[in-house]
Every structure is written in C-alpha cells, then in structure tokens.
C-alpha cells in the first residue's frame, strides 16, 4: 500500500510554491510602496514595513513546506524504487464530494455575485436559490427517493415550502425585527 501519492505530493509542492510566490509578490509590493519621504516621517514607520516582513515570512515558511514536500516525495520514491507513485483511482465518494463542492460553490457564487444587488427582490432570489439547491442535492444524494414515481410532486412541494418559508423568515428577521437592510 503506497503511503504517499505522486499527485498529492505534486499538490503539496504546488501549494508551497504558491505561498513562496505570494510572499514574494507581497514583499516586492511592500518594498516598492511609497516611503512618504516628502512628509519626513520616521523611516521606522514606513507603511510597507510590516507587510514586507510578513511577505518574507511567507517566503520562509513556504520554503519549509517545499523542502518537506520534496523530501517526502523523494522518500516515497526511494521506498518504492521508482520515480513516485501514481494515485490510486479516486474513490467514488471522494469524486462525488469534489463534484458536490464544485456544484455547491457554483450555485452559491451565482446567487451571491450573479443575482443579488442587481435590482431583483431579495426574498424571491433567495427562495429560488434555496429551491434549486435543495432539489439538486436531493437528486444527487438520493435520486431514487426524490424522483421516484409519485414522489416527485412531494419532493417539489417540500422544497418549495422550505425555500419560501426560509426566505420569508430570514427577510422578516433581518429587515423587520433587527432593522437591517437587505441586499
């Protein structure tokens, strides 16, 4: 049984490089930041001081992650006498989980960034989002139960009741009870 996968190791290396790159960008941006010499401020209070230090720390710790990921990959390759180990086929639940997260993320972003703040009434938009989310994931998690003959109408009614109830309740709670503006 392989203890480390080539793909997981590649991801760990990519993440470490990502941190180093981000840290470098932050450090360079901080270095190039205006030092406000025309205001004759103390050189120890320049705005880029702390971001610069933080950028450098990201580079240092990113480098530690990189060294560890590389050593871990090399150790696995040595142990198996090959160049690395191929990932065993992803399990169905892991693949489903990834697809679920992608679908949920896309729905959430579409609702929050695509529809809100564009003049559509909040309650209707929220109810629509909840309805689609409930139906889509009910289908993904138990298609047989949701769409079996005679159950579809019940599933649709349930989802509609939940989405309308939740949207109206939340809108009322925020807008009327706690006097907060809705997007």
């Amino acid at each position: 049984m392989p203890s480390v996968s080539r793909r997981a190791n590649a991801v760990a290396i990519a993440v470490a490089i990502g941190w180093i790159a981000f840290g470098l960008v932050v450090a360079i941006a901080a270095w190039r930041m205006d030092r406000l010499t025309h205001l004759r401020i103390s050189p120890y209070s320049i705005p880029g001081l702390v971001p610069g230090i933080l950028g450098m720390l990201m580079v240092v710790f990113g480098w530690v992650l990189l060294a560890r990921a590389k050593a871990s990959g090399a150790a696995a390759a040595d142990a198996d006498g090959q160049d690395g180990i191929d990932l065993p086929p992803a399990t169905r639940s892991a693949r489903d989980g990834l697809i679920n997260a992608l679908v949920a993320g896309a729905l959430c972003v579409a609702f929050a960034a695509g529809f809100l703040g564009r003049g559509l009434p909040f309650t209707a938009t929220a109810a629509g989002f909840i309805f689609i989310f409930v139906m889509l994931f009910s289908w993904r998690e138990s298609a047989a139960e949701t769409f079996a003959a005679g159950r579809l109408a019940r599933s649709l009614l349930q989802a509609a009741a939940v989405s309308l109830g939740a949207a109206f309740l939340l809108a009322w709670l925020f807008a009327d009870v706690f006097l907060v503006r809705l997007p």
Binding site: A113, L116, G117
Partner: peptide, 26 residues
Amino acid sequence: TIIMPIVFVLCVLGSYAIAGRVFDIW
C-alpha cells in the same frame, strides 16, 4: 441539503448587513 443553502443565505445577509455594501459579499 436543506440546512446548507439556508446557512449560505444567512452568510450573504450577515456579510451585507454590517455596512450595507455588496463589496462585503464579494
């Protein structure tokens, strides 16, 4: 499947409510 979309709507409302800016939702 019922709780999570409601939680997300709460997240959107909560982000917006503090200053009334769409930027905060982003």
